[in-house]
Write a protein that binds this DNA or RNA. Structure first.
Length: 904
RNA sequence: GCCGGGAUGGCGGAAUUGGUAGACGCGCUGGACUCAAAAUCCAGUGUCUGUGAGGAUGUGAGGGUUCGAGUCCCUCUCCCGGCACCA
């Protein structure tokens, strides 16, 4: 009896069945290879968004695929539950962050279950619960005692009105998001993880990560930023004392071109120079305004002030001015840089702005030893002025020793030359290449005790103190007598009180004596508990390990469980985490390794970074020019006969709206599509199928209502094809015997499809092309209507294989169809389909004929036709004959199995 | 600003190792079925040109390498992600 495809019923039934069978419960099993499949856990922000659906569907497809392939699969889920949005919600709605968070978790968990994810829910973890963060605190105290964690001053955004520290996100155009006050920089004490101690190892480890996208590894490499340079000093005398101003440079070869030194506003020398220099003091004060975000600093107008201090160039002995520059970062290198305007873009603009000298000392290598055209260079500026610098050295290459100073400085004045070259006007270093010059200069600096070669990292230590309430308390007790004392094991966890509503003015913990008043564990004296909490990145840096034994009350992770499951075989998450989260997790894995908790160096063997989900935007301009964003679901589109959108109307009032760009789904643009609505209307399988089909996983995915219709239509076609077949009675799938040409062709396509889908999901992870191949197979099956038992056995084989190939992607409908195709058996027990190599053998193949690389025809030839025969056939082809017009071909290229190209 | 990525029909995308550009899906056009609509099915669908067979052209722009380039190299434009306190 045939019935329509009813996703609601079959999905509920399938989910119930999986639940009863405990189908996704992960247990230790040494007889099968393990596959730990992990999707980045969600922040419980309210309800699931499409990005979550995409992320978790990708993970689920891979988990279910590996389950069918015979792996022992672990796919857990949890909640990254501490964070700023809970505090924002608390401010807006006057609810404690805990309550808001827990109710979001309840709701989102129900939604995840409706998606039909094959998750082992018995391992669920929530980072804001004491049984989780207790182990974070435990690890913190270990690392603190080891010296991996230490305290130092760090710069933060300070809102002078709200009297609170602001996250970068809360600084908008240099002002506090709530108060609108100009943000200031302020230095406060913070705890730091010594991640720089692991910089070398984190860098080297990238080379072992074959399963990571090259782009992510490149970003991490650049972030760690290992550079080989020279640290050296400019001596000076101040207040009668001899001192040294240290700088770091990767371009020591340009040292002879130094015309000033720039230091950060926070540099101690700047502070000293500002005493008795009101202009400088004012400038330093000005530098304190604005956010600490590097992107903000980088796009700022470059400004500076002369300190009046002069230092001595270590090689030339010249006096060089010291400037304070707002573009020099205190946190990198020495907080001071040598400035070579002729060969550094920032220095160049700075020098032009303040009329500082520009002294070129590097020329392109092509200038060396090439014939001179003195007329072009020396005859005067009238000629060279007309040429750009690039043209100058292209048109008139010159001997190094005959380059006039004028010519070089003309080039450099108009465009700095930051690339590699050879030294000029550099005395004894003239003519040296970059590396020769760096060696020679470093040696000379070392000889006078003013410098040495040094390896430097861009990576900075990780400050984890947050002056916020909704986070993991830092387990430190401040004792006036004993200093910073870690909370002893038996007093852990330091529990965060959950019934607190923050008010946006600093951390409420700092105003709760019941939280912070305590006794020193060392001396028993009166002490104060630390009220800062940890960066939420700390929780997400080790949760993957906790999933191995989430319930352990005695260990951070049970040793046997860690051995069974770690490392993660496949990690899936947004590309926006390419650097910070993934680097911190790699760092934490090493910290845990060094504590003897886990084995191996890397936490994630394979990584898939998924793209964003985007959607069209629509708006109206309300009074005051403010855009009022309208949800795409409420808009009707008019199109021209070609399907191009011409106008959009709000359905509610029929009046036009403006069509905006296609942007990331977000609340602010009101272009989010609620996954719940899609699941309610079409079912989870349609939502999953559309997500996997619309784009490859690592690219952005554009939401399309009609695309969802198309996905649903395909599932209905599969449903109908299966039922049409079953209605005539199921038969045994094809195993052997003679077949018609059409049946053979169908089997050929079937087994090519199995091969492709297996490869697309297992190796390439291009789910969109896997689905397209199954769609083509269904199209072929629909055209095949041969009677007879042999033909029906091929249809049975095709239908069964198609159901199994689709099972990881659309598990509910597959579960239901399998039960009809093989009454009494359970899809959960089926292995992945295997390619029958015998079905792939073809007698004839098609070859393409090209003339000069252009398609001109094709040939059907027996599979093993030899090259000479192919050339003959191609030359005899009428299209080739026509173009040859009696002449002979210059050359014939045969690409076996593909094409023949005749060159004429 | 710095680092990383992307750009292919009306739209999402395919082309896996330099070898038939546009698979698959959406949309659109025409047809069948229907009193009608929905659903479904069939055919067509890059652009220009031609009655047609066909021809020319075409992968963000410009140049290059090659028998052959969406794919490799150089220069440029625009869009997206990250930039250490959003997660």
């Amino acid at each position: 009896m045939q019935q329509d495809y009813q996703p609601r019923d079959i999905e509920a039934k399938a989910q119930q069945h999986w639940h009863e069978r405990q189908a996704f419960r992960a247990v230790e099993d040494s007889t099968k290879p393990k596959y730990y499949c992990l999707s980045m856990f969600p922040y419980p922000s309210g309800k699931l968004h499409m990005g979550h659906v995409r992320n978790y569907t990708i993970g689920d497809v891979l988990a279910r695929y590996h389950l069918m392939k015979g792996y022992n699969v672990l796919q857990p889920m949890g909640w990254d539950a501490f964070g700023l949005p809970a505090e924002n919600a608390a401010l807006a709605n006057n609810v404690p962050p805990a309550e808001w968070t827990y109710s979001n978790i309840d709701y989102m968990k129900r939604q995840l279950k409706l998606l039909g994810l094959g998750i082992d829910w018995s391992r669920e973890l929530t980072t804001c619960q004491p049984d989780y963060y207790r182990w974070e605190q435990w690890l913190f105290t270990r690392l603190f005692q080891k010296g991996v964690i230490y305290k130092k001053l760090a710069t933060v955004n300070w809102d002078p009105v709200d009297q609170t520290v602001l996250a970068n996100e809360q600084v908008i155009d240099g002002r506090g998001w709530r108060s609108g006050a100009l943000v200031e920089k302020r230095e406060i004490p913070m705890y730091f993880f010594r991640i720089t101690q692991y910089a070398e190892e984190l860098l080297a480890g990238l080379d072992t990560l074959d399963g990571w996208p090259e782009q992510v590894k490149t970003m991490q490499r650049n972030w760690i930023g290992k550079s080989y340079g020279v640290r050296f000093a400019f001596p000076y005398t101040l207040d009668g004392r001899d001192e040294k101003l240290w700088v770091y440079t990767t371009r020591a070869d340009t040292i002879m071109g130094v015309t000033f030194v720039a230091i950060a506003a926070e540099h101690p020398l700047a502070t000293r120079a500002a005493q008795g220099n009101p202009e400088l003091a004012a400038f330093i004060e000005e530098c304190k305004r604005g956010s600490v975000a590097e992107a903000d600093i980088a796009i700022m107008e470059k400004k500076g002030t002369d300190t009046g201090i002069r230092v001595t160039h270590p090689l030339t002995g010249e006096q060089v001015p010291v400037w304070v520059g707002n573009y020099v970062l205190m946190g990198y290198g020495e907080g001071a840089v040598m400035a070579v305007p002729a060969h550094d873009e920032r220095d160049f603009h700075f020098a032009k702005k303040y009329d500082l000298p520009i002294k070129p000392v590097i020329v392109p290598e092509s200038w060396k030893g090439v014939a001179v055209d003195p007329d072009r260079i020396t005859a005067g500026r009238s000629k060279t002025d007309a040429l750009s610098g690039e043209e100058l050295h292209r048109v008139s290459p010159v001997f190094l020793n005959t380059v006039t100073h004028d010519a070089i400085s003309w080039v450099s004045w108009h465009e700095q030359y930051a690339r590699e070259g050879v030294c000029a006007e550099s005395g004894k270093y003239n003519g040296m290449t970059q590396s020769e010059a760096i060696d020679a200069i470093a040696a000379d600096l070392a000889a006078c005790g003013l410098g040495e070669k040094k390896v430097q990292f861009r990576l900075r230590d990780w400050g984890i103190s947050r002056q916020r309430y909704w986070g993991c308390p830092i387990p430190i007790i401040h004792c006036p007598a004993c200093g910073d004392v870690p909370v002893p094991d038996e007093q852990l966890p330091v529990v965060l009180p959950e019934n607190v509503v923050p008010d946006g003015a600093g951390s409420p913990l700092a105003r709760m004596p019941e939280f912070y008043v305590c006794v020193c564990p060392k001396c028993g004296g009166k002490a104060k508990r630390e009220t800062d909490t940890m960066d939420t990145f700390v929780e997400s840096s080790w949760y993957y390990a906790r999933y191995a034994s989430p319930g352990s009350t005695t260990h951070l992770v049970d040793k046997k469980a860690a051995q069974q499951w770690l490392p993660v075989d496949q990690y899936i998450g947004g590309i926006e985490h390419a650097i910070l989260h993934l680097l911190y997790a790699r760092f934490f894995h090493r910290l845990m390794r060094d504590e003897g908790l886990v084995q191996g160096d890397e936490p994630f063997r394979n990584l898939l970074t998924q793209g964003m989900v985007v959607a069209p935007t629509f708006y109206r301009v309300a009074g005051g020019g403010k855009k009022q964003w309208i949800n795409p679901a409420d808009v009707d589109l008019d199109t021209d006969p070609k399907g191009r959108p011409t106008a959009a109307k709000l359905r509610a009032d029929g009046q036009p709206v403006v069509i905006g760009g296609t942007e990331k789904m977000s609340k602010s643009k009101n272009n989010g599509v609620d996954p719940q609505a899609i699941i309610d209307q079409y079912g989870a399988d349609t939502a999953r199928l559309f997500m996997m089909f619309a784009a490859p996983p690592d690219q952005q995915l554009e939401w399309s209502d009609t695309g969802v219709d198309g996905a649903h239509r395909f599932l209905r076609r599969v449903w109908r094809a299966a039922h049409d077949h079953v209605a005539l009675g199921v038969v045994a799938p094809y195993s052997h015997g003679e077949l018609s040409a059409a049946a053979k062709a169908l089997r050929l396509q079937l087994h090519l499809t199995i091969q492709k889908v297996d490869d697309d999901i297992g190796r390439r992870k291009t789910f969109n092309t896997a689905i397209a191949a199954v769609m083509e197979l269904l199209n072929a099956l629909a055209k095949f209507d041969e009677p007879g038992l042999a033909a029906r056995s091929v249809v049975q084989e095709t239908m069964e294989a198609m159901t199994l190939l689709l099972a990881p992607i659309v598990p509910h409908i597959s579960q239901a169809l399998w039960a009809e195709l093989r009454p009494g058996s359970d899809l959960l027990d089926q292995p992945y389909p295997q390619t029958d190599l015998a079905a792939l053998v073809q007698d004839e193949i098609e070859l393409v004929i090209q003339v000069n690389g252009k398609l001109r025809g094709s040939l059907q030839v027996p599979r093993d036709t030899d090259k000479a025969a192919l050339e003959q056939m191609a030359l005899a082809h009428h299209a080739v004959q026509k173009l040859l017009a009696g002449a002979t071909a210059k050359k014939v290229i045969v690409v076996p199995g593909r094409l023949i190209n005749v060159v004429i």
